[in-house]
Deep mutational scan, measured.
Amino acid sequence: MQRVNMIMAESPGLITICLLGYLLSAECTVFLDHENANKILNRPKRYNSGKLEEFVQGNLERECMEEKCSFEEAREVFENTERTTEFWKQYVDGDQCESNPCLNGGSCKDDINSYECWCPFGFEGKNCELDVTCNIKNGRCEQFCKNSADNKVVCSCTEGYRLAENQKSCEPAVPFPCGRVSVSQTSKLTRAETVFPDVDYVNSTEAETILDNITQSTQSFNDFTRVVGGEDAKPGQFPWQVVLNGKVDAFCGGSIVNEKWIVTAAHCVETGVKITVVAGEHNIEETEHTEQKRNVIRIIPHHNYNAAINKYNHDIALLELDEPLVLNSYVTPICIADKEYTNIFLKFGSGYVSGWGRVFHKGRSALVLQYLRVPLVDRATCLRSTKFTIYNNMFCAGFHEGGRDSCQGDSGGPHVTEVEGTSFLTGIISWGEECAMKGKYGIYTKVSRYVNWIKEKTKLT
């Protein structure tokens, strides 16, 4: 034993070699072989497995989906700052455009905790909710729209109204504003409101030439003092309507412009014939205590009207009353817009006519005020429907199939267009061939041609 100890002390290297040989010859039971080890760690190889990531292109799944990435790591994937920024906006807080917040056709661009709407022409605001041009839906104005110097929408209202708090709607500024039905039992019968379409306001006024200088022999019209197929109006439903009495009662109609003036057809009036105007009328054979009678003290036909040349060209006249009318729910003026808007309103496509005229061709006159909704007829169809001249200051309205029309005794009465609950004068009943005849239409004086003249002559002093 002493000898062994001496050998170990003198030859430590020998001992180490012996131990190493023993270990190498022993069977290893701690580690699995290569094949079995792979069965336990069965993990798919990654895209760049075996390579240094710093030297390969980034992978979106590896960089940002398996674990949260930084902007720089995302930049490695896209290799483009702009594309990385677009991805980053949604990656950080989701897609803010998912709810489609942009209105009126706006395009949404996502941002971090926010979004941006790219608005089409005519709109602005956070969600493109603000109209900035009158060309689109009248700028959301209830009545009139004008573009300011910086191309912003400025709404306005006709006389007797003021802008509401929203700067879009119009509200009454006087007790009985024009064009409004205020009798409670008839307010439910107000005709369907007309909503502004998209309009090209630059070209809204037709490029028409008034044929002022045409000389033409007097034409022989049949029954051209021209509501057939209409309905009984309720008291106060058309408070701007008046009836004219002269040699015979209810020979023509008219509309209240203001307390002192009536507008009617020029062919209705004769110099030297006494005319009485009755406002607030409903049943011409009954006294309903809503009527107001006034005498006409002055007749002003349009300066281009000449019955000797043509009885229905420039067929418009103004009547001055001896005493002002007292405005109330049964006696209310009709609204008159400017030339541009009167023309736009007419193009809405349908209007209402009213009167006490004959209820059928050569038949009896109506006792109760009649009204009828009539569609506008395109000019080409209008011209083809008659052998008589249709001037540019006239328009056609009615039904091709016949059966409904204005008729004798309705002449001078109103053709009105309702705009968001307020009625505007767009025409004056003038003439036609018979009444409600198939293929024939009622012919009306186009008020847009005469609004400046009306307003100039009827100013209240």
Results as ranks from 00 to 15, higher is better:
3 R>V: 14
4 V>G: 13
6 M>Y: 10
8 M>T: 12
8 M>I: 15
12 P>Y: 14
15 I>L: 08
18 C>F: 13
18 C>N: 04
19 L>G: 02
26 A>C: 13
30 V>M: 12
30 V>A: 09
34 H>V: 14
36 N>I: 10
43 R>E: 02
47 Y>I: 04
49 S>V: 06
50 G>R: 05
56 V>D: 01
62 R>L: 00
65 M>V: 10
66 E>R: 05
69 C>H: 00
72 E>N: 08
73 E>Y: 00
75 R>I: 06
75 R>M: 11
76 E>V: 00
77 V>C: 06
77 V>E: 02
78 F>P: 02
78 F>W: 06
81 T>L: 10
81 T>S: 09
85 T>L: 12
87 F>R: 02
91 Y>N: 06
91 Y>H: 08
92 V>Y: 06
92 V>E: 13
95 D>S: 12
96 Q>E: 15
99 S>H: 12
100 N>Q: 13
102 C>S: 02
103 L>S: 12
106 G>A: 08
106 G>I: 02
107 S>P: 04
110 D>N: 14
111 D>K: 11
112 I>H: 14
112 I>P: 09
112 I>G: 13
113 N>D: 13
116 E>W: 11
119 C>N: 03
121 F>G: 14
125 G>R: 03
126 K>T: 14
129 E>A: 07
129 E>R: 04
131 D>V: 06
133 T>C: 05
136 I>C: 05
138 N>V: 06
141 C>Q: 00
144 F>Y: 09
145 C>E: 03
153 V>E: 05
153 V>G: 08
153 V>T: 14
155 C>G: 00
156 S>V: 07
157 C>M: 01
166 N>S: 05
170 C>A: 00
171 E>V: 08
172 P>W: 04
174 V>S: 08
174 V>M: 07
180 R>F: 05
182 S>K: 06
187 S>C: 06
187 S>G: 12
189 L>K: 12
191 R>V: 15
191 R>E: 15
192 A>V: 13
193 E>C: 06
197 P>Q: 13
198 D>K: 08
202 V>R: 14
204 S>W: 09
207 A>L: 11
209 T>F: 09
210 I>H: 11
210 I>Y: 06
213 N>D: 07
217 S>E: 12
218 T>R: 09
222 N>E: 10
222 N>H: 06
224 F>D: 11
228 V>L: 08
229 G>M: 15
231 E>M: 09
231 E>D: 10
232 D>F: 09
240 W>Q: 00
243 V>Y: 15
246 G>T: 08
246 G>P: 05
247 K>L: 07
251 F>H: 12
252 C>S: 01
255 S>I: 08
259 E>F: 04
261 W>T: 01
264 T>H: 01
265 A>R: 02
268 C>A: 01
271 T>H: 14
273 V>Q: 06
274 K>Q: 10
275 I>W: 07
275 I>P: 05
276 T>W: 07
278 V>Q: 05
279 A>S: 03
279 A>W: 00
281 E>D: 12
281 E>I: 15
284 I>T: 12
284 I>V: 10
284 I>D: 06
285 E>A: 08
285 E>K: 10
290 T>H: 12
290 T>E: 06
295 N>C: 04
296 V>Q: 01
297 I>C: 05
300 I>W: 05
301 P>S: 08
306 N>K: 10
308 A>M: 10
310 N>E: 06
312 Y>G: 04
314 H>N: 13
314 H>G: 04
316 I>Y: 00
316 I>K: 01
317 A>C: 06
321 L>M: 07
328 N>F: 00
329 S>G: 14
329 S>F: 05
332 T>V: 13
332 T>M: 06
332 T>Q: 04
334 I>A: 04
335 C>A: 00
335 C>V: 00
336 I>R: 01
342 T>F: 00
343 N>K: 06
345 F>W: 06
348 F>M: 15
352 Y>W: 05
352 Y>Q: 03
354 S>P: 05
358 R>H: 14
361 H>G: 10
362 K>N: 13
362 K>M: 09
364 R>M: 09
370 Q>A: 04
371 Y>S: 11
372 L>D: 09
373 R>W: 04
375 P>A: 14
377 V>D: 01
380 A>W: 07
384 R>A: 13
384 R>L: 09
385 S>Q: 14
389 T>Y: 11
390 I>Y: 12
390 I>F: 11
391 Y>P: 15
395 F>D: 01
405 D>Q: 15
405 D>H: 14
407 C>E: 04
407 C>W: 12
408 Q>S: 12
410 D>S: 10
412 G>K: 03
412 G>Q: 05
420 E>R: 12
422 T>N: 04
423 S>G: 09
424 F>S: 01
427 G>Q: 00
429 I>L: 14
433 E>C: 08
434 E>Y: 10
434 E>Q: 14
441 Y>T: 06
445 T>G: 02
445 T>P: 00
447 V>K: 00
447 V>G: 01
447 V>H: 00
449 R>S: 15
451 V>K: 04
454 I>A: 01
455 K>R: 12
456 E>Q: 12
458 T>Q: 03
458 T>D: 00
461 T>N: 14
